[in-house]
């Protein structure tokens, strides 16, 4: 059974807006229960700040069940906190100890400008998908769903890649701020499916071009992305992307 009176010291990055200079501010939170999620702990802090007529800490979140990809936060140096395969919203306070000091920072990357405090703008991800992360099929053009059998294993591998929630932890974790894992997950997912194979090479080329144009860094296979990915997507998919890209750029037309 857990305690419900942990005392924590939070060092939180506060920044008014994109142009403003940010700095850390220290807050004390008392009566933290081990059953709280990390975000509920921040809710408690914010509730207190609002009741003191201070501005609450801005952080993004939505589904709070680890699937929408909205929440972020670098917690003690770990994107989504120290527990692997877990989003911040599913991280619970039982993994922290009474008296801990916790440092909370936003995703830091030139391509993810800070909006406010811990909130960053991840539009670049949308633009990468828009550059080719789809199959060109209109509504109504589909043939029967069972017309093309797909090997169970292949569908599984595609699903492993498709499970990406677009949160940006890979970029936050990467010392190069590269979004290769994000880009690769979509390229690899669609390249696995026979329906997506048709455009695979072109898709890889376009998405990499967009990735580069957005100002993300270059992958040097450090694998920090995989280590911090809340969906544990493998860098294997980056190799797949590299293959698709090479065959498109060097081979192909």
């Amino acid at each position: 059974m857990g305690a419900d009176n942990m005392k924590l010291t939070l060092k939180i990055w506060r920044q008014k807006g994109n142009k403003a200079k940010g700095q850390f501010q220290t807050y004390q939170v008392d009566n933290v229960s081990t059953h709280m999620s990390f975000l509920e702990m921040l809710d408690v802090l914010n509730e207190k700040l609002v009741s003191d007529k201070q501005e609450p800490v801005a952080f993004e979140h939505d589904c709070r069940e680890g699937i929408c990809g909205t929440c972020s936060l670098v917690i003690n140096g770990y994107p989504h906190g120290p527990m692997q395969g877990t989003t911040t919203c599913q991280l619970h306070m039982r993994h922290f100890n009474d008296g801990d000091t916790i440092t909370i920072e936003p995703w830091r990357s030139a391509a993810f400008p800070v909006v406010k405090d811990l909130v960053v703008n991840r539009d670049a991800f949308d633009r990468i998908i828009q550059s080719g992360g789809f199959i060109s099929v209109n509504t109504g053009q589909a043939q029967d769903g069972n017309a093309i059998p797909i090997e169970k294993e292949v569908a599984n591998e595609a699903m492993d890649a498709a499970t990406c929630i677009g949160c940006g932890a890979c970029v936050a974790a990467c010392p190069n701020a590269s979004a290769m894992l994000f880009t690769a997950a979509k390229v690899s997912h669609l390249a696995h499916m026979p329906q997506g194979e048709v455009e695979a090479a072109q898709r890889a080329r376009r998405m990499v071009e967009q990735h580069d144009a957005e100002g993300f860094g270059r992958c040097s296979n450090i694998t920090a992305c995989e280590a911090e990915c809340p969906k544990e997507i493998s860098v294997e998919h980056i190799a797949r992307l590299n293959r698709e890209y090479l065959s498109s750029s060097v081979g192909g037309k």
């Binding site: 670098v74 770990y78 120290p82 010392p175 992305c225 995989e226 280590a227 860098v235």
Partner: peptide, 10 residues
């Protein structure tokens, strides 16, 4: 980052 853990997967 003020604090950065350098975890890798392999």
């Amino acid at each position: 980052y003020a604090v950065k853990a350098n975890r890798t997967a392999g």
